[in-house]
Simulated scan of single mutants.
Amino acid sequence: MKLKIMNSIRTNNFNDEHLMQKITDLWQEASGLLDNQKVITYAVYHNYESDYKGDYSLSITVEDDAGEPSLKILNNAKYEIFNVDTTKEHGVYDTWKEIWAREEAGTLERAYSFDFEKYSPNGEIEVYIALR
């Protein structure tokens, strides 16, 4: 999959007191660049320092088969897919809490390569977690 990066941040889930504002600002900036296009948009988590408690990069991207990719995710990677309950206000965050809990319990062995949230034009959201 070839993805064009709209914008990125470097952050941490637990040590960044401005995390929610940084992510909100990131999405607002990306929305302005998308010009209301009906495209699949991805929030890609990459360049992990360690595990989910360490620093990582978060990039808002769109599929771009026409140009040079600014981020390339291997299609042969193995992923577990989590469907987000979009009827809940914090559905994405709740999904991540489930992922972290499964990892802590030892029932999810993450690769920490490229994880991503897939935002479809129809409103569906899926979280893809790379597995070892």
Rank of each mutant, 00 (worst) to 15 (best):
Y42H: 14
Y42I: 15
A43P: 10
A43C: 11
V44G: 09
V44N: 12
V44Q: 12
V44H: 11
Y45W: 10
Y45I: 09
Y45R: 04
N47T: 12
N47A: 12
N47G: 04
N47K: 13
Y48Q: 01
Y48I: 01
Y48F: 04
E49T: 10
E49P: 02
E49D: 00
E49R: 12
S50R: 09
S50L: 03
S50Y: 05
D51T: 08
Y52I: 06
Y52L: 01
K53I: 03
K53Y: 07
K53M: 07
K53R: 09
G54S: 13
D55M: 11
D55E: 14
D55F: 10
D55L: 02
D55N: 14
Y56D: 02
Y56T: 07
S57Y: 04
S57M: 05
S57K: 04
S57N: 07
S57D: 12
L58P: 12
L58T: 06
L58K: 08
S59V: 02
S59Y: 11
S59Q: 05
I60C: 01
I60S: 05
I60K: 01
I60P: 08
I60Q: 05
I60R: 00
T61V: 08
T61S: 06
V62Y: 08
V62D: 05
E63A: 15
E63C: 13
E63N: 13
D65I: 13
D65E: 15
D65M: 14
D65T: 14
A66F: 10
A66C: 01
A66W: 10
A66L: 08
A66N: 09
A66D: 04
G67W: 07
G67V: 00
G67S: 13
E68F: 04
E68Q: 13
E68I: 13
P69D: 07
P69M: 01
P69I: 07
P69H: 10
S70D: 10
S70M: 09
S70W: 06
L71E: 08
L71F: 06
L71M: 13
L71G: 11
K72S: 14
K72W: 14
K72R: 13
I73Y: 03
I73K: 11
L74S: 02
L74K: 00
L74N: 06
L74I: 09
N75Y: 05
N75R: 09
N75Q: 11
N76Y: 07
N76A: 02
A77T: 00
K78I: 00
K78C: 01
K78V: 03
K78P: 04
K78G: 01
Y79L: 06
Y79T: 09
Y79K: 03
Y79N: 05
Y79D: 02
Y79F: 15
Y79W: 12
E80V: 03
E80T: 08
E80P: 00
E80W: 02
I81V: 15
F82C: 06
F82M: 02
F82H: 11
N83F: 08
N83T: 14
N83H: 00
V84F: 03
V84S: 01
V84K: 05
D85T: 06
D85A: 05
D85P: 01
T86K: 00
T86S: 06
T86Q: 06
T86H: 02
